[in-house]
Amino acid sequence: MKFLYQFSARDSFIHRLDPRSKLFFILCFLVASFLIPYPWIMPLIVIALIWGLGGISPREYLPFLLFLLPLMFAITLIHLLTDGPPYLQVQGVGLPLSAPGLENGLVVAFRLASMGIAFILFSMTTDPFDWGMAMYQSGLNYKVAFMFAFALRFFPLLQEELVIIRNALTARAYHAIGSKNPFTFLQGVAISIMPLGLGALRRSQDIALAMELRGFNYAEAMGVQRTVFRDIRLRRWDWAVMAVSVGFLLGVVALAISRGTFPAIATSWLIFLGLLAVLLAVVAWFISRAIKG
């Protein structure tokens, strides 16, 4: 069950886009999702986009969608219980369930769902190395970009190893695998991590040697500029997608303002997100400088 990340190496419109334009689209989409009055449309839009333009049907990431449902339920429940009056009335009996809470909860839940699905759109249609190398071309330090892509590439293998480890635990009559008790389940997770981690550590030493022998440090040692073999550049369609994204966002903003539903709270969200983005960019810059130097 590879629902957290799965790159499907296919050819579709979305697959052919540069990772940067896809990221841009997702960013605009996420910001817009705070302003759309009917957020339950959002997940459907994303699913339709992935299906139509990406050739990936929802059945392929069904486990992920199912994973989202309890999360969405929990969020709605929290708002239902904690938001203020007016309370719901059922047949004249007042329940301690907030009426606006139901609405707020659902709105937030669907926003979350659309964010998650948008992430899937990205991860299933983007070769992690295209992603990494696109960032390298945009200035990120090579080794950081490479390690990032490399980690994503190894994720499915770790998942496979985890299955074997769980079977091995069962072979030792270990009870916690598949337990319904969350505490025991967590124990099972903890004990699986050790062989997974140590195995990964051991293999990473072999990998590091293989990389060194094939010239991972050659460019620095010999003062040569690395080539990027893959053809990553922003093409017409990428600019088109980015333009449409901006247009979509502006349209949503205009709509919200004209309908008077541009709430003050959204402004503070935007400021918060903006600050977050700046912070992340600064941190990434610092890390890449540290590695370069």
Binding site: Y218, T227, F229
Partner: peptide, 9 residues
């Protein structure tokens, strides 16, 4: 390609 990329070919 990787080893050759590293060498700047």
């Amino acid at each position: 390609a990787w080893g050759l990329e590293n060498r700047g070919l």
